[in-house]
Design a protein around this nucleic acid. Structure first.
Lengths: 336, 336
DNA sequence: TTGTACGCGTTATCAA
DNA sequence: TTGATAACGCGTACAA
């Protein structure tokens, strides 16, 4: 491995000078710089990252914490972050936390020990207090998919209330008036907000909210099937099902089809997220698009900005709006 | 940040001793060790990873290179690797190469500059020569999903030929004799091997191989739909479709259903990989299981072994066998 | 079993 | 604009 000092010796300058041209900082004479660059190219020198990190206490690493990249949603998240990282030659360190707070905290410690100040953190288990405290300590920490007023300018999140409202409004516009909801039973804000939005859309349209028409379950295809069965047993009447996410929607859809219900002719179904599986089912799933890849990309850019510039506007948060992505699982209901 | 020397001072021992107990190596007196550990706990000391990496020229990082974790298959791959890494307190650095050889090579350089000797590399674009040369230079490089005889003991791969054979044999056992194939047009060994296995199974059963019954396309749901349409236009006769992967299978299945063909009553469909989307479609997809998560886990364990012990058997490769995972898209065909 | 002393490859603070 | 020189925090021969 060729070192900085090797380059310096061959170029006939000091190590300090080479360091300056490598980093592109400090004053260096034009022809001196050109010469050094030449030698660097000739020798194929590449800086030792660990030595650099040790001396500067910085490292070009962006840590990404996510429950589990096996799930399409989080895969898209990581891809978005990695995309932004590649543009500035940063590396991404990944942690699958499996929703274990200890694992998440440990990953954060580890990232920091590696000299990384840049962390994009999606947590379903950390408390607001924990996040606020971490944000104080870690300059480049960005909280993804969550809104915490105290650190609003460090949050990149989706307007889930609007999402819930849009989903339902889309169905109302198509003539539906009898709904059933497959909600998440996870102790998170997202499910609450989406339901709140849904409720709002209903009230606006003068449709009563029936709590008995809501099933709370852990999101998965299998549970979507179970959930819709339970709703059916309760003798809920509906022409549309609104699901917390795509998996639940697809489970519901498939179970209904098994029972001879035609989608979307008899019942319309709408999902949430717009993950890849929406194209696998039949009919293809109409869903509310969650631009997670873009959001993750933006979040890592924000993290970078947080650690490199002072001009951050701490009075502003970063809120994304979802929109309905139409496929084939929702149909117009002429009469009701 | 509390340093090694801080601990040493407070404990009244030398830095070298603290270093020994931290690493659990070298001889240290029992009560001395206990005392130092006590102080470490009290002070909340954690080693500086960069300093350690600089001094030892090693870093506890495992690099994972994959085309794109947005795809479920690669998401599972990364999860498997991360799983193994967590067990030994290693961190994973991720690179989405998007099948760009430059990106892959760059990632490798970067990993090495970070002091990592451990790399799990899935490449669709690197040549065998490149891989062989890299393996020479990088002690802990493991090639995933590919077999290169010269570095057989560094390869963790699937028997794709057996996979192709098993898929078709499963269908033959169910009474099918007329097949159509949706193959990949990617310039890789996997598609070739799977087709070879399929052909073998056919010949064993005395069924002729019809090259015109094979469609070569880039794997995706959309292309599965297009592919089966093309085969239909060619007036191929078949009672079963064998797809290179799950996406193609699902595309084919859905298009057939659109045309009024009943799956599996009229036509059976089998996929490959056993990714999450198999449960999203209707009927759920019977497929050939590719144990990618386990393989990736094993691959990173192998990489670790390669860099820590000398007792590696270089006469042995690491070959996994796929198996048919039955769901609902394949049915028995009584007469033909 | 424990301690000393030097090196790892950079960055950064001074002088020059 | 350039060059010494001291950190950075730890690992590791070697000596004790």
């Amino acid at each position: 491995m060729v070192r900085l000092s090797d380059v310096a010796e061959k170029a006939g300058v000091s190590a300090a000078t080479v360091s300056r041209v490598v980093r592109g900082e400090g004053k260096v004479g034009d022809k001196c710089r050109a010469h050094v660059k030449q030698v660097i190219a000739e020798m194929g020198y590449r800086p030792n990252i660990n030595a650099r990190a040790l001396a500067s206490k910085k490292n070009e690493i962006i840590g990404v914490i996510t429950p589990n990249v096996t799930q399409a949603f989080y895969g898209a998240l990581v891809t978005g972050a990695e995309n932004a990282a590649q543009q500035v030659n940063y590396r991404v360190m990944l942690n699958n936390s499996h929703n274990q707070i200890d694992t998440e905290l440990d990953a954060i410690s580890s990232f920091r020990e590696n000299g990384s100040q840049n962390i994009v953190y999606h947590s379903n288990v950390a408390s607001n207090e924990q996040l606020i405290n971490l944000a104080k300590e870690i300059q480049g920490l960005v909280v993804l998919n969550r809104y915490i007023p105290e650190i609003a300018h460090r949050c990149v999140w989706l307007d889930n209330t609007a999402g819930g409202r849009l989903s339902v409004k889309h169905l109302i516009d198509k003539g539906h008036r009898k709904f059933v909801f497959l909600a998440s039973n996870q102790d998170l804000q997202d499910p609450v907000d989406r339901l709140k939005g849904a409720k709002g859309a209903l009230l606006e349209a003068g449709i009563p909210w029936l709590e008995e028409n809501v099933g709370y379950i852990m999101p998965s295809i299998d549970n979507g099937m179970k959930g819709i069965s339970q709703l059916l047993e309760r003798k809920c009447e509906f022409t549309a099902v609104v699901a917390f996410n795509d998996s639940l929607a697809i489970g519901a859809m498939n179970r209904l089809q098994d029972l001879g219900v035609k989608i979307p002719e008899d019942v319309s179904v709408i999902g949430f997220d717009n993950t890849d599986i929406c194209k696998a089912c039949r009919p293809q799933l109409t869903t509310t698009h969650y631009p997670i890849a873009e959001m993750a990309k933006y979040a890592t850019e924000l993290s970078l900005k947080l650690t490199t510039t002072d001009e951050i506007d701490s009075t502003k948060t970063h809120l994304y709006l979802p929109h309905v992505y139409e496929r084939d699982s929702v149909a117009t209901r002429s009469a009701c």
